[in-house]
Design a protein around this nucleic acid. Structure first.
Ligand SMILES: [Mn+2]
Ligand SMILES: [Mn+2]
Ligand SMILES: [Mn+2]
Ligand SMILES: [Mn+2]
Lengths: 216, 216
DNA sequence: TTAAATAGTTAGATTTGACTAACAAATTTA
DNA sequence: TAAATTTGTTAGTCAAATCTAACTATTTAA
């Protein structure tokens, strides 16, 4: 095999960080993957040798077009899997990430293309993140943070940012799901807590929660 | 992770060989996995250290109850996957083995139990091999070889032995599938070719083919 | 029943992907 | 701007899983 799981996991992290900040630093990769800095350093050299990154000592890393393409295909597999698990196998959105983290390394284009077909070529995964198509292209539409919205706005929950299974369980307990319409009633000046209304009830959401909800 | 893919692949091969011959030898493992004898030797010692095998220098290997149980769970994952790919994702029986070879290493009991449930707890995979249940038990019903049948017998194709994707494609081309009723018309004394009738036509099947078809 | 062939083992090397310890460069802060 | 802190690199080690070469035990055949 030319690509190990390890290589794929590094590449995916680097790609995701590159979306946010364009150039990427070693320490943040180490944190994301929970490995030591020297491990990152040596893998980065290998990835550069494979033409997936540009690397110069002490300079920030840049992902190449080839690296982006390859990363997009891994993310495609991850997100299609999550969507398939939720839509076709009855898992909850809080149960699928860990399974997808493993399935994304399966080497069978046909397997994922079949998932895609069965799902009707979805553009977003169960958490609202875009699913790259089989050419590696994907929606770049940006949503607003709920925490940037003002009182009296009426918005729709579209996606989540930096989600964890625990956060998803919290959202379940509050009846918050993608597509829910939320009206902002009041923003507390002191701590930015938001009083909101949705699904026929009112709730108070913390600033932390509001900063992870993407709306339009 | 306590079990690597490599460990799982060895254990599965050893289990399958143990079904056929009770005790297993190093060389046949090496051939099945296409690795060198020393590689097998060192892995066997490791598996013995894990309590999955009994190993004494120069003696045939024996799989322990613990080893059998673990192997059965891997085979369960493999065969459930094959069944799911065929029944729920529209793959042909000749397309699923290689994908299952990878998916069998996914560490999520829930994922495979959900497949099992969706499939209605099938007892056999698309090739007629028994699927262990979630406790590791499975049907041990033995079928006859078509090559052991006599003229004028009417039998049903139930399973395949030592199948490959190429053999499955050959069966497709001949319209042979599990459940097909086959009547033996004549056995050629010289080369054991069989003249058979099924699906409203007659065909001549070679001894090689007949020795891979399991019937009842 | 010895010799030849086969099967299994040991020793030592290699690759991959991790690690720690030590150090060097870059950045921040005083 | 010099010192302190943070970030990144190098060197060297380790474990897992593989290999080849050399050797030993067991089995088969002359
Ligand atoms: Mn995910
Ligand atoms: Mn992964
Ligand atoms: Mn198979
Ligand atoms: Mn496998």
């Amino acid at each position: 095999m030319t690509n190990s799981q390890s290589i794929e996991n590094y590449l995916k992290v680097i790609f995701n960080q590159a979306i946010a900040t364009d150039d990427v630093n070693t320490t943040s990769i180490a944190q994301a993957l929970e490995v030591s800095l020297p491990s990152v350093n040596s893998m980065v050299k290998k990835l550069a040798g494979m033409g997936l990154l540009e690397y110069e000592k002490y300079k920030p890393l840049k992902i190449t077009a080839k690296g982006r393409k390859m990363a997009a295909m891994i993310i495609r597999k991850h997100r299609l899997t999550e969507m398939y698990l939720v839509e076709k196998m009855g898992f909850g959105w809080e149960e699928v990430h860990e399974i997808a983290e493993q399935l994304e390394h399966i080497q069978s284009v046909a397997f994922f293309d079949r998932m895609d077909e069965i799902l009707g070529f979805p553009e977003r995964d169960p958490h609202g993140s875009p699913i790259p198509n089989s050419s590696g292209e994907f929606a770049t539409q940006k949503f607003r943070l709920l925490s940037d919205c003002q009182p009296n706005e009426l918005v729709t929950l579209k996606a989540l940012s930096k989600t964890t299974d625990e956060f998803l369980k919290y959202l379940n307990s509050k009846g918050l799901a993608l597509g829910v319409e939320v009206e902002i009633l009041k923003v507390e000046a002191y701590d930015k807590n938001m009083k909101v209304a949705y699904g026929g009830k009112t709730e108070v959401l913390s600033a932390l929660v509001c900063s992870k909800l993407l709306v339009s």
